[in-house]
Design a protein around this nucleic acid. Structure first.
Lengths: 96, 96
DNA sequence: TTAATATATGATTACTTGTTCAACTATTCA
DNA sequence: TGAATAGTTGAACAAGTAATCATATATTAA
């Protein structure tokens, strides 16, 4: 299974999305339910700016999706694989 | 599913292992079969030093295991979750 | 229209990470 | 023993990344 460079880069990008503790917690919240930027910021104890920057990267990878309602923007998971990767990873951490 | 900080960090560390294209290719080779450092270096077109540095990190996470035979050291995958994460990620990249 | 709220963005800065280079250890073979 | 091969390690440097701050945009309400 010697990957070509393109696929290796794409895979690395996907896993990079989960390679930071803040993003991991952010995604764990979104797996439960959609959530606005400000609520995410409050739950994660991060500034809204920092959260927004992270969400931007995740959006570009099509891992989360945005929905505006009034002045709030609600984010949710945009890809089933993410939740499955997350669960599998958690498995490893728990009894690995 | 609001993770505590420790689990979030551990998860992030796990995914970090696959967050670089060189490591992704390295692991894809080891998923096939165990391989010596020099052969890995040749296949990946990296120096043995660079490969060794990467393997060190993966070893510390208990994702790969080393076995010495003469002057060579053969590395192999030390955790089933890795292969499964890898396959699931590949799924996403292919038809995501 | 003005003010207030919610989010996004660009620039800067501090930190992290991957590679290289040189030096070192371990093993085999002559 | 000495030379050659295989791998490891630490330091240094370059490139990448996450947070912050200030500013900008969008939406609502007064």
């Amino acid at each position: 299974m010697d990957l070509n460079e393109l696929k290796a880069i794409q895979l690395a990008e996907l896993f990079s999305a989960l390679s930071d503790a803040s993003r991991v917690r952010l995604i764990s919240l979104l797996i439960e339910d959609e959530m606005s930027v400000s609520k995410l910021a409050a739950r994660l104890k991060m500034t809204e700016s920092a959260v927004s920057h992270q969400l931007r990267g995740l959006r570009q990878l099509h891992l989360v999706r945005a929905r505006r309602s009034g002045r709030q923007v609600f984010y949710s998971i945009d890809d089933d694989h993410v939740s499955r990767l997350f669960t599998l990873g958690l498995d490893h951490v728990r009894h690995g």
